[in-house]
Simulated assay, not measured.
Amino acid sequence: MNHIQVLVVDDSAFMRKMISDMINQSDGMEVVDTARNGRQALEKIKTIKPDVVTLDVEMPEIDGLSVLKEIMKIHPIPVIMLSSLTQKGADITVQAIENGAIDFISKPSGSISLNIEDVKEELISKINLASRANLKTGQSNHFKRENPKLIYSKSLVAIGVSTGGPKALQTVLCDLPHEFKAPVIIVQHMPPKFTLSLAKRLNKISNLSVVEAQSGEILIPGKVYIAPGGQHLSVKQVGQALVFETSQHEFKSHYRPSIDYMFESLSHISGYNIISTILTGMGSDGVKGLKSIKNCQASNYVIAESKETAVINGMPNAAINQVGVDTVLPIDQIGQVITDIISQRGRE
């Protein structure tokens, strides 16, 4: 049996040992080496060629983000960032994912976390996932495309995404024009602080205003809303307005925010075309919500990202197989197709 070979990079000897012990105690993986700084990590990657790297965000000499960029140049391999739960750590982590990191783990209590074992299950799961990630994303000319049969003049765009999301969202949102005439709701699986960092980051590069959604906020066409980490987000209709509600109550999903939760709320909205999109991510969050939209909405259109460009094809594949999507597209075509749909409805 081939083990997943992991290189652990952290400037703390304590953290290197704790992380290594957690990995070595797990079936199917082993730590082949450790590095105490970025320079050492880059040298070892050239010779060892590990399957996965765990990389601390905050390190002396060369910071984690700079190391990551260099890894992606010299030897692209799956990288999981370890980040403190500070706003600064969240900001850098979002940039890291945009620059090629597969995922991240939040250290429970700062740079040197004595309770790092609290995230052992999450770490092992993400290493397994990272080892199967698609880093060689490419183009595809083979995709399904059905023409929209939409009946309303107003539209609402909803996007669900998980692992690999920030980079995918950047691609999609940069293709939406200033005059975009529909609100856009995004559920990205992320904890608190990280979703705020994501919103601020996307706001800098998008043609549209991107914010973290707030309970009681009225949805405005041409604005992008990120579901806040640690809370479920739903939309309700109040007269002619659409209004956000947030909740922390239990839901049949271990994700919070949950894509299913948001999609299911959209199945009760009337008078809007619901344009739903499922992008890269593990598992099947979004499938139940999409089924509700398909069953309850007279005017809907579902887009899934193609396996050729998805970092993790789990969520798009589940939607394709279990819901029956209308279109399967590479990530670099999704924004333009959404724009075309909204523009066409706006002219009618």
Rank of each mutant, 00 (worst) to 15 (best):
G286Q: 05
I159D: 08
L219W: 10
S234K: 12
V52E: 00
S125T: 14
G335N: 01
P257F: 00
K204L: 12
F244L: 06
G100E: 05
K307N: 12
A133N: 10
D260F: 05
I23S: 00
G314E: 02
D332R: 09
V211F: 07
E58L: 03
D326G: 04
T93N: 04
S20Y: 03
S209N: 12
V210S: 02
F14V: 15
A130M: 03
R201E: 02
L219M: 14
G100Y: 08
P257H: 00
S109V: 02
V210A: 03
K200H: 12
D118F: 03
E250W: 00
V79A: 08
Q336V: 13
I259T: 06
Y301V: 02
K307T: 15
P257S: 05
K294I: 13
M262C: 07
R256Y: 01
E146H: 13
E212Q: 14
K288T: 11
E146A: 12
E117K: 15
G89V: 05
K236V: 15
Q344W: 13
S265A: 07
G289N: 09
A304H: 05
E70I: 09
K193P: 02
I127R: 10
G230P: 04
D51H: 14
H178T: 06
I23C: 12
A13C: 10
G160Q: 03
N37P: 11
I62K: 09
D56G: 06
K204E: 14
I218V: 14
Q322N: 14
A298D: 15
Q248N: 13
S20K: 02
F244K: 01
T195E: 06
G286P: 11
I48R: 13
I23T: 09
M22I: 05
V210W: 06
R145N: 11
S234R: 12
T163G: 01
P192I: 05
I112H: 03
L7Q: 04
E212L: 09
P177N: 01
V172A: 02
G346V: 01
Q240W: 03
G28K: 07
F180R: 06
V32W: 03
L176F: 08
K88W: 09
R347I: 00
D118L: 14
E250M: 07
S106V: 14
S125K: 15
S153F: 01
H75V: 02
S111R: 13
A319F: 07
R145P: 02
G222D: 04
G64A: 09
E43C: 03
V328N: 05
V172Q: 07
V6G: 11
